[in-house]
């Protein structure tokens, strides 16, 4: 298995990631020039699938899946729902967009400059791989007793954090159910009383 993996990666290298990033850049520029918002919504879905593919190639499978679920799944539905309430063609801007382009380019350059400081992708000497990661990898099975390292980090080392997140999600779900279900129950009661 490991031999296969090394062979496959040495042949392809980061080529696939680079190709996917080139596609993403081209697509982003095309979306920015589009006037039809319906087409833009569709192309955003494609963009999200591309970035999910790139993240999968970089071994961040869970992040990639979230990106695909949120970007290509729910966001498309929400954007289309919003388009149903407005028009689906963007109006021409009244003034020139030079300032906006300047701000966007400057921000992009600053972000790119910020990445120069960061350790290389997959560097074993990066701080994130030096701090607590080795402790989790080597000692979590004896300390916690769960063979899956991710599970023991989520459920034990960061147990309070996970507990808080679960509470937030539960509260949101209860709120949504109360808002949606309340309407249905009231309507049913009203139609029931009129019969």
């Amino acid at each position: 298995m490991t031999g296969d993996r090394v062979m496959g990666e040495s042949i392809m290298g980061p080529t696939v990631e680079i190709v996917l990033f080139v596609f993403m850049i081209g697509l982003a520029f095309y979306i920015a020039s589009l006037r039809s918002l319906f087409a833009a919504a569709m192309l955003f879905g494609i963009f999200s699938l591309l970035s999910a593919g790139a993240l999968t190639m970089m071994d961040a499978v869970d992040v990639a899946f979230t990106e695909a679920a949120v970007g290509a799944g729910i966001s498309t539905v929400l954007i289309l729902g919003a388009l149903g309430l407005t028009t689906s063609v963007e109006t021409r801007p009244i003034h020139h967009r030079f300032t906006a382009k300047l701000v966007v380019t400057a921000t992009g350059l600053m972000l790119a400059y910020g990445t120069l400081d960061m350790p290389a992708y997959g560097d074993p000497d990066a701080p994130i791989n030096k701090h607590v990661a080795p402790h989790y990898l080597y000692d979590s099975e004896t300390e916690i007793g769960i063979p899956n390292v991710v599970t023991s980090v989520l459920a034990s080392y960061r147990g309070y954090d996970t507990y808080g997140e679960t509470t937030v999600v539960l509260t949101a779900a209860v709120g949504a159910i109360l808002l949606l279900g309340g309407g249905v129950a009231r309507r049913r009661r009203e139609t029931g009383s009129s019969e």
């Binding site: 298995m1 490991t2 031999g3 296969d4 993996r5 496959g8 990666e9 392809m12 319906f38 919504a41 569709m42 879905g45 699938l49 999910a52 999968t56 499978v61 899946f65 695909a68 679920a69 290509a72 799944g73 498309t76 539905v77 289309l80 388009l83 149903g84």
Partner: peptide, 30 residues
């Protein structure tokens, strides 16, 4: 398969389901 982890097929199946939701929304809207 290229990186020696054929378990990723399960992931690919989930992406197929995800794609279906977006497609239904697009066609319904059109």
């Amino acid at each position: 398969f290229l990186t020696g982890r054929p378990e990723w097929l399960d992931l690919a199946l989930l992406y197929a389901l995800m794609n279906f939701i977006g497609m239904i929304a697009l066609l319904r809207f059109s």
